[in-house]
């Protein structure tokens, strides 16, 4: 058994499993001894390694880009999954959810546990996980190191990931320190999500998705907008936990399959 899927051996057939097949990684959430447990693996391995077939026989509710590529899974939309995950994990009822994943970010306004409105980025993946991966490689830093920096001011002008790389090289040549450029990268992500967060003003922002592990970005948002930014435990797994806790999930329609 593949290590990341070894948890399946301890599950009973027919048991419920939440799967968030995102653009970068696929996350799993399931109940073990009455508590939520999680696992993660690369989406490319999961989908192209035909590992989705291992899930046949379980009661799978799926979300994310690959949600319809899992045989017998019942897919639910991402906004619902992520919101449910946060509701389940935090107990909060009113908040603005910011989820930054591998290639998208979503902002959801939740009031009295209900989704009031949402925005997702469209046509451009600047400011997402892929962007940070690129930048960390350029700066010769790990993602964890890059994510620890806090941005205070605008250093990078470009709004495009590709052009930002060019700009970064120019600034390196001019002698800018790696630390200053890292701060600039974090600030540029903040600038990317700021207008969307400002559309849904709220005292509490719940920050989730892979990028939420960047503590410096969370701090930048908190200081910049004067709000509390809460990063829940297992913040990368909200979609999978939401899928696990979803009720009244319809079977996929023929038109969608």
């Amino acid at each position: 058994m593949i290590p990341e899927l070894s948890f399946l051996e301890e599950m009973e057939m027919g048991q419920k499993l939440g799967v968030d097949a995102g653009s970068t990684s696929t996350k799993f959430a399931f109940l073990k001894d009455g508590r939520i447990s999680t696992s993660i693996m690369d989406t490319s391995r999961f989908l192209y390694g035909k590992m989705a077939e291992c899930l046949v026989g379980f009661d799978v509710v799926s979300t994310g880009y690959g949600r319809k590529r899992i045989p017998s899974a019942r897919p639910i939309p991402e906004i619902r999954a992520h919101t449910l995950g946060v509701l389940k994990s935090t107990g909060l009822e009113d908040f603005t959810l910011l989820d930054i994943g591998g290639q998208d970010f979503k902002v959801v306004r939740v009031e009295k546990k209900g989704i009031r409105d949402f925005h997702m980025n469209d046509k451009c993946a600047a400011g997402t996980g892929r962007f940070l991966e690129k930048m960390s490689a350029m700066l010769g830093m790990s993602m964890a190191e890059l994510g620890s920096f806090r941005g205070n001011e605008k250093i990078l002008e470009s709004v495009c990931s590709v052009f930002t790389e060019t700009e970064l090289i120019s600034l390196m040549v001019e002698g800018a320190t790696r630390e200053r450029l890292a701060e600039g990268v974090i600030f540029s992500v903040y600038e990317r999500v700021r207008p969307l967060l400002r559309m849904f003003p709220c005292d509490t922002i719940v920050f989730t998705g892979g990028v939420s592990r960047c503590s410096g970005l969370a701090m930048t948002i908190s200081v910049g907008l004067s709000v509390d930014v809460m990063v829940p435990e297992r913040s990368q797994f909200m979609g999978a936990i939401g899928a696990l806790s979803a009720r009244n999930v319809k079977n996929p329609s023929k038109a969608l399959s």
Partner: peptide, 19 residues
Amino acid sequence: DERTLIRLESFIDVLEEGG
């Protein structure tokens, strides 16, 4: 494209849930 479809499905889902 898949991104637009995700947004569309989420919107319909929210409407079905009555917001």
